[in-house]
């Protein structure tokens, strides 16, 4: 464990909690892509199956359980509790465009051809594109509430900190997880454009982020 990874995990947790609180407090999931949240729930489910096979540390186990619980709670709020506020017509990203290539790639490129490893690889590849329905939705409607942009900012920060963590681990431990690093870098690139808009529009004070 190093400071970048810990900070990255904390940002990830903060992002998820921001989203959950936004939905809970406003009693609305307007502007949130339910599809992205379903993808994140699938990501955590397929990645954390090793909860049943290996024990790494109390921190590792607790965080995994928390991420799983919060991601399912988010999906529940969007599709069950507050489904009448969900803009399904704007959440129109075609998931098969992500799922088919990701499933194919995880069978082709993995560390071992075993069910758990293929599912782990699938989760890594899927996480790298899971935010796309949300970004697509913002592009389609042309705006995002500032709370939604804070969520995206913390999610992007988590990814950037994980890259710092890998640089650190490479130099201190010689650790290099090729699949995670390549997908992680791809994933972080998706946030760069958004970071620019966040800093120039949201932080310079306006309630909503509107696209130029």
């Amino acid at each position: 464990m190093n400071i970048f990874r810990l900070a990255g995990d904390v940002c990830h947790l903060v992002a998820i909690i921001i989203l959950l609180l936004k939905i809970w407090r406003s009693r609305s999931c307007a502007g949130i892509s339910g599809k992205s949240q379903v993808l994140f729930a699938i990501v955590f489910t397929t990645r954390y199956l090793d909860l049943f096979t290996v024990f790494i540390s109390p921190y590792n186990t607790i965080m995994k359980v928390v991420f799983l619980a919060l991601s399912y709670a988010t999906v529940y709020l969007i599709y069950m509790r507050f489904r009448n506020t969900f803009n399904s017509e704007n959440d129109s990203f075609r998931l098969e465009f992500l799922l088919v290539p990701v499933i194919g790639l995880s069978f082709l490129e993995n560390y071992a051809f075993t069910p758990l490893e293929i599912l782990w690889t699938f989760s890594i590849f899927l996480e790298s594109v899971a935010i796309m329905p949300q970004l697509f939705m913002i592009t389609k409607t042309g705006e995002a509430e500032s709370i939604t942009t804070h969520y995206l900012f913390f999610l992007g920060l988590y990814r950037a900190l994980y890259i710092a963590n890998w640089v650190w681990r490479y130099h201190t431990e010689g650790f290099f997880d090729q699949i995670a690093v390549v997908s992680g870098v791809v994933q972080t690139i998706f946030y760069i454009d958004f970071f620019y808009l966040y800093v120039t529009k949201v932080l310079r004070g306006r309630g909503k982020m509107t696209l130029p």
Binding site: R5, H12, R47, I56, N60, Y111, A112, E117, Y162, D177
Partner: peptide, 10 residues
């Protein structure tokens, strides 16, 4: 080499 596919990151 990769060690027994132990994924210690979240």
């Amino acid at each position: 080499e990769y060690q027994d596919e132990l994924h210690d990151e979240l």
